[in-house]
């Protein structure tokens, strides 16, 4: 144990009595909220589906990219044969009008794009935001001003418009999912950075940080050992709400035809092709629309739950809820 650790430990305990609860406590507080719990259940299911996509498609015996001319009625312009968009024992959720590609396989593979890009973009945003926020909070006045004004501009700009414009100038050969992660990540770090800067400024003046500095810790060490642990709660709270917005952005960009490129299946893209079929084959619209809706809602419910759970005042409120539901607890 180093000097700064020794000095930090008692100060941290007394100065921040409502310090970030650990992962176990977070989970206990999340469990008390029904909406958040439902969100977690849906997310776990979606992640499993995304991970097991090849397995699920194999189980159904279909390939996401294979065309099935016999499954659509070419005389009617390509409307799926059978009811509910061509649902059958072979095609569990029907087929895509026009091409006859299997919808179940395309939807489960689409979960990979949606979740993968949504989560990866959030990671990029959080890393950038924490780095910029810490630098602004710890740096000199000039650096702080420069970074804070840049953050203001980033926050004001409509992400979607800039993402679309950026996607226009990148060479076509660049792998699309990586590009989407980078573009969303580079445009969306403003909120995290602003929160981290504010937290850093208020933590910086606390005794335990001063003690660490007196103990000879450098800026980098202070940032890493003393500040980052206390930043975890606000950063986790904010980033939990970034995930659904990134998933929605990816769906939106793919819907506009500038996200992932076909034939890679993506919910947004399926939705956009579904809009031309929505009168002849409403099932085809409802599936991707419903999935995007449920996914975004589940992540939002979880994010909202995390915010309540990590709110310093939440402890008493949640205890009250729990008492109301299960009777008094010691």
């Amino acid at each position: 144990m180093t000097t700064s650790d020794v000095l930090a430990a008692p100060g941290a305990a007394s100065d921040t009595p409502e310090a970030a609860p650990g992962a176990r406590q977070l989970w206990r507080r999340l469990r008390a909220q029904r909406a958040a719990l439902a969100g977690v259940a849906v997310i776990v299911l979606l992640v499993l589906v995304a991970l097991a996509a090849p397995l699920l498609a194999a189980l159904e015996g279909q390939d996401p990219d294979a065309y099935h001319a016999s499954a659509v009625d070419s005389a009617l312009g390509g409307v799926p044969v059978g009811s509910f968009g061509g649902v059958s024992a072979d095609h569990w959720l029907g087929v895509e009008p026009g091409t006859g590609r299997d919808l179940f396989a395309r939807l489960v593979y689409g979960a990979r794009i949606s979740l993968g890009i949504g989560l990866a973009a959030t990671v990029v945003q959080v890393v950038l935001g924490v780095a910029v926020g810490l630098a602004a909070g710890l740096g000199n006045r000039f650096l702080d001003n420069l970074l804070s004004r840049t953050t203001d501009v980033m926050l004001a700009l409509p992400t979607l418009v800039f993402a679309i414009a950026l996607l226009a100038i990148v060479p076509a050969g660049f792998p699309r999912p990586v590009l989407l992660v980078l573009v969303l990540g580079l445009l969306g770090w403003g909120g995290t950075s602003r929160i981290v800067r504010a937290q850093t400024l208020s933590l910086k003046s606390l005794d335990y940080v001063a003690a660490a500095r007196l103990g000879g810790a450098g800026r980098w060490r202070i940032a890493r050992r003393e500040l980052l642990p206390s930043l975890a709660a606000p950063v986790v709270t904010y980033s939990a709400l970034l995930v659904p917005s990134n998933i929605a952005s990816e769906a939106g960009l793919s819907f506009l035809g500038i996200g992932v490129k076909p034939p890679t299946p993506s919910w947004g893209q399926m939705l956009s092709s579904a809009t031309t079929w929505y009168q002849a084959d409403p099932t085809y619209v409802l599936l991707p629309a419903g999935l995007i809706f449920v996914t975004v809602l589940a992540f939002t419910a979880l994010g909202d739950g995390v915010r309540t759970a990590l709110d310093p005042r939440a402890g008493t409120r949640l205890r009250a809820v729990a008492r109301g539901r299960k009777g008094a607890r010691p």
């Binding site: 659904p244 929605a248 769906a251 939106g252 939705l271 809009t275 929505y278 995007i292 809706f293 992540f299």
Partner: peptide
């Protein structure tokens, strides 16, 4: 829900 759900879903 309104904060989260993209406008094109509602529109469709």
């Amino acid at each position: 829900a309104g904060n989260a759900v993209p406008v094109f879903i509602i529109g469709i």
